[in-house]
Design a protein around this nucleic acid. Structure first.
Lengths: 139, 139
DNA sequence: CAATTGCTTCGAGTTACTCGAAGGTGAGTT
DNA sequence: AACTCACCTTCGAGTAACTCGAAGCAATTG
């Protein structure tokens, strides 16, 4: 099964711009061209792109992903380094999730706060609780 | 209590560059200067910066954060819009956490896979399972 | 057969930093 | 007093990872 760049973009949930960017930067080395020079993606390309998307979404830089790809192409002796890279990515992603959950708590608090303000329409807000200094003091 | 830019950077876990960037772009309107033109941050500035950091970390653009700040300075009649903004941020952050958890599962799989490869040293890897097409086919 | 669709490359633009150079100020040392 | 150090300043340039638009080619469609 082969796909056009738009089909791939749709499937992967990323833009065609990003796919071309990844391809131009050597991250999709197996993508072929048809007789009109259009990119032709196979399922195997999708699988590799899936890893790229995963690593990018979890914050790995393009440069590092390229390094990872190079390792994968270098064969089994690079497995330990690839293992270390994935371990690091795993740890960073766990931390990122924790951070996001913490930030979400802050946002939840804001939502509840505004909901309460809207609930009792015309509130006794002496001090707007989301501005620490009053607007008037800004001078 | 007042703080220097470095103290604030330390406390908030961001760079002094970012803080200056936010200040230059009008996102910290209450920060004062001392007699040598150095920025002086109060606790109230830290609280506001904390919201900026939270919103940035959860993917809100600087432009949108500026809009949110403007709303906050415009008083209580903007509470409904601020509420909507926070609701949206809440939903997006929940989705982002879900996506990250999904990506984490992929990474976990990779880690386990490499661990297994390293366990039985010298594996019968006919096909390197993390490269879908063989390196030799790349020509 | 002209218009539309969908791809191509190329180069420029965008966001949100990130950094280094050049310079001012105050505190401490020689 | 002069020097050095630490810390701040502004300004302008650089970076990562897209993002977009223009110009052009090929196949399909009315």
């Amino acid at each position: 099964m082969s796909y056009t760049i738009h089909e791939v973009a749709e499937k992967m949930g990323i833009s065609t711009y990003s796919i071309r960017y990844y391809h131009e930067h050597g991250m999709l080395p197996f993508v072929q061209r048809d007789e009109n020079n259009n990119r032709v993606f196979e399922d195997s390309d999708l699988e590799w792109l899936n890893i790229i998307v995963c690593l990018r979404a979890t914050g790995m830089s393009v440069a590092r992903i390229k390094h990872y790809l190079a390792l994968a192409q270098d064969g089994d002796e690079t497995v330990p380094e690839r293992y270390e890279m994935m371990k690091e990515q795993q740890a960073q992603t766990l931390q990122e999730i924790k951070d996001l959950q913490q930030h979400l708590a802050t946002i939840n608090f804001k939502v509840d706060h505004y909901a309460a303000l809207m609930e009792n329409h015309e509130p006794d807000s002496f001090i707007p609780s989301d501005l620490q200094r009053k607007t008037a003091v800004s001078h």
